[in-house]
Design a binder for these strands. Structure first.
Lengths: 228, 228
DNA sequence: GTCACTTTCTGACTGACAGTCATTTTTAAA
DNA sequence: TTTAAAAATGACTGTCAGTCAGAAAGTGAC
């Protein structure tokens, strides 16, 4: 049925049109100040229509997060195209993430908000949340893959469990990135004002730290047995 | 004036009574579902009174975060009492933080919310936010101090800038901790369900990673110049 | 072209809640 | 007891997310 196909496509378009409008409004005013009526006006639709495509405001915001994570994952995927060692890939994944956050603070804020949601039941029912979750899984998968490559080519210490290490690196990268984000957007975290550092150098230190930590020659890592 | 002193004390008490009630309600229902009327009822006061002590709901929640950070800082301070190397102190600071988050998820959620606030102007005016900020600064100060001790006693590589390294370690610790938090509270981050890891072991890996990264013998850290 | 039926869209309406403020109650000192 | 200041109250207001009965547009058969 060609008509049905077209309708399907049109639905998709409407949905995207609404997400476009929501980004426009939410990225500029912030989630709290952005009203559904604002978004409807921006999308040149009525408020009721928004609710035909998204169950509620939160789900619409999750749709934005999903879009962001899709874009990010595409960039991650590109990193694997080049001819690099695992360790180099890990570095490039970090660079990519950091660059994404700096250039797309709106998406980053959507990520943070998504992660802070805790009404698990509501999220379980949401299709949008489900596919957003898929993207997050994929992102972590990239990290695991990079580590496995690194362990094979000898650039990464293989005494770690790659999946566990992936989570460690991924989450600490997120910690750093969140700090960089705060510094970049002029967040209220005062410590950052006083410490006059460049965010790039901060990230550089982090990379050095992680790199030293996971690089081969595990002899290095025996200090812990004394220390604890 | 003895009367004035007493009044001062009573004000302080009321304020604490309200924060107690707010914790009770918000920790059990979550911020969004907790209404100011709920909190007032729990505090056995009227809604209006809440607004005599806190400008708005957000400021009340920040007061909770402040209380949490005060408790946490006290624990951090205790770590320095023992006779440990800098590297050991860093480890213990991490342990302390992790333990705090596990046992006080409500405070941790308040921290996260506080950090996600972005209306800088409103925060600048808030006394509560200001003192909360002081606590955060103090927390980072502990990390800086631990690193300096480590660099002096030779347990930490002194080729890093201690303040920059403090931010790196502090923020990556926060990243890890946030992951542990999600795992512990049954967050919706599906990847975590599938990866059957124990949060303690995750943290162990992180400590190993950081420890290896910052421990002395900087020869280890030269890999980057090749890798990038 | 028109009819009958379905899908999509609309915006006035509802309920819930944060925050206000005129009024009442309590306290303190004369 | 009086009076003035301080503290507390809760009915009220404005805003906004989310709903729903009905209007409009689209579809396909004849």
């Amino acid at each position: 049925m060609s008509t049905e196909d077209r309708k399907e496509r049109e639905k998709e378009q409407r949905s995207n049109q609404i997400i476009d409008a929501a980004e426009e409004v939410i990225f500029s005013k912030g989630l709290a100040r952005a009203t559904m009526t604002d978004i409807a006006a921006q999308a040149e639709l009525s408020k009721g229509t928004l609710y035909l495509y998204f169950k509620n405001k939160t789900e619409l915001y999750i749709a934005i997060a999903r879009r962001g994570s899709k874009i990010l994952n595409k960039r991650f995927a590109k990193v694997f195209a080049g001819d690099f060692t695992g360790l180099q890939i890990i570095r490039k994944l970090g660079d990519t993430y950091l660059d994404f956050v700096k250039k797309n603070p709106g998406y980053y804020r959507a990520f943070m908000h998504y992660e802070s949601l805790n009404d698990v039941e509501i999220l379980r029912k949401s299709e949008v949340a489900k596919s957003c979750e898929e993207n997050r899984k994929e992102a972590l998968g990239f990290m695991v893959r990079a580590l496995q490559i690194g362990m094979q080519d000898g650039s990464v210490d293989d005494s770690y469990d790659p999946r566990q290490l992936a989570i460690v690196i991924w989450s600490s990268t997120k910690g750093i990135t969140s700090m960089v984000y705060m510094k970049e957007v002029g967040h209220h975290y005062k410590v950052l004002d006083e410490m006059e550092f460049e965010t790039d150098r901060l990230f550089e230190s982090f990379i050095k730290l992680v790199g030293t930590g996971i690089a081969t020659e595990q002899a290095r890592s025996n200090f812990l047995t004394d220390g604890h």
